[in-house]
Write a protein that binds this DNA or RNA. Sequence first.
DNA 1: AATCGCGAACTTACAGTGTAAGGTACTGAT
DNA 2: ATCAGTACCTTACACTGTAAGTTCGCGATT
Lengths: 229, 229
Amino acid sequence: MQAPKRRTRAGSDDPHRKRAGKRGRGAALSRDGIAEAALALVDAEGVDALSFRRLGQELGCEAMSLYHYFPGKVHLIDAVIDRAFGALVVPPSGGDWLERLRRLAWNYRAMALKHPRLYPLMAVHRLNTRAGVAKLDEIIGVFRDAGFGDAEAARLFREVGYYLTGAALDETAGYAKGPSAAAPVSQAEIAASFPNLAAAAPFFKPQHFEETFSAGLELLLEGIARLKR
Amino acid sequence: MQAPKRRTRAGSDDPHRKRAGKRGRGAALSRDGIAEAALALVDAEGVDALSFRRLGQELGCEAMSLYHYFPGKVHLIDAVIDRAFGALVVPPSGGDWLERLRRLAWNYRAMALKHPRLYPLMAVHRLNTRAGVAKLDEIIGVFRDAGFGDAEAARLFREVGYYLTGAALDETAGYAKGPSAAAPVSQAEIAASFPNLAAAAPFFKPQHFEETFSAGLELLLEGIARLKR
DNA sequence: AATCGCGAACTTACAGTGTAAGGTACTGAT
DNA sequence: ATCAGTACCTTACACTGTAAGTTCGCGATT
């Protein structure tokens, strides 16, 4: 077999080489660095832009080099989601439990809105990393600290979680983001044929997001508070 | 091993291929038929299995033939989701509005559970087809018929929708479905290091889904009913 | 000092994807 | 008999994740 191009790498005069001379030193790549770049890429261009080749391009290395730090794309995605989810602040215990829960809910929403292009992926992704599990544990703790029994704490955690997930999903990926790629129904047609939707549409705009979120949350919190009385 | 890629469709040995005489007659393909097959494929093997080539294989035609009926994959997905969503039954007006809303919520959940592998896609997909818009209009009508004003009907529609979306997502794609592909945290470690999660985990099993869903829904409905008083 | 192991990055290759562009066969109307 | 149109097929391209193998250069061992 013929000796191939075999361009000897670093330090050569090869014009194709980026990160010249750094070979082996300076730790150009790392798990954290890669995950950070991946999150930045997703934030900037959406999940579809996240590919190993594209990410390598961003980091100045080849796609396959990333496999040394992440055995597969799923693992990379886990790390990216971990990064975003890890930034969720669970208010410390002490003080009014209801207020603590309220703050947690708002913090969750803020976390999702910080990464609107990532969140739809988070919502359908099962969290099983150590950091993720630790965060879940903290959150469930909020309900247990409030004095609910194990069964009721678990249930309330889910119910509140359902609301938060749906709300975050709507605000990051919902109707207000515009139509899907397929031919959408025109505004004129909606006005003419779908009176209920037409009446509601003005209130579906982003400026009503916060108010809607708040109203629904309070509905839930009131109900939960009533359980204790 | 070379496969008989050629599979000159239905059993004919004619190398010039003519779909067993059906060519041009019998309308082997149709928008509805394709969408139905696509939904069946997703139900059976998940969204990842849905590709034009695979679908063509399923239908006995070439992948590109499908482009005659759907200009792109997004349009196909729209049609698939339309099919599932269209089966959601909105209870007729008349009678107790609260009971009507309750039934609608349960019907929504049933619809999602009928297509557990499709639902995660539905949840992040923006609905803009005629049938989809019509269904939305119907649903919003439930709130308006109940006597809420436009603004409040719109808000309640969303708030209830948030809960339903989150619940359906959890039941179809959540924790109980097992860990993601990355290395999960072991049960033993959870028991040892995450007491809150360990205490809640038993209640996260599928047999508690219905009870959890019901309790959260009633929490919301009670709150909504109180708004009218 | 020469050798080796090994981590870290690179190369190649493959099966799969959506889809653009163009080709062909059959049908029904003229 | 001709012709336009519908329905389907072929080829090709740029992209994806990733399996397998290659090569470089540092640090430790001999």
